[in-house]
Amino acid sequence: MSQARFQPGDRVKVRNAEVVGHMRTPRYIRGHEGEVERICGFFANPEELAYNRHGLPKRALYRVRFDQKKVWPDYQGPAGDTVDVEIYEHWLDKA
């Protein structure tokens, strides 16, 4: 287990990557910028666990908050609406 690269309040961008196999980063949020809301903890990598490997070292998992109006150009609702998504550190870059 290492230190978390990002802290609450940091602006981050989700990698817009194509992946083959199991992963937990929904497609709709890839490429979007958001703000780290909290560090959820450190967890084994699900992309490895899915294939019965240990998934170590553990990765930092973040809850990242995104503005709905930026995620969905046609979003129907006021500016303050948000969506929180849990994202593993290796899916995030500094925004």
């Binding site: 980063t25 949020i29 699900p46 998992l61 609702g77 609406d81 969506v83 929180d84 849990e86």
Partner: peptide, 15 residues
């Protein structure tokens, strides 16, 4: 109402 923010939580991982 529009003066209340809607916060959606997508439980994608371990929470």
């Amino acid at each position: 109402p529009d003066d209340i923010a809607v916060r959606v939580h997508d439980s994608t991982a371990d929470m």
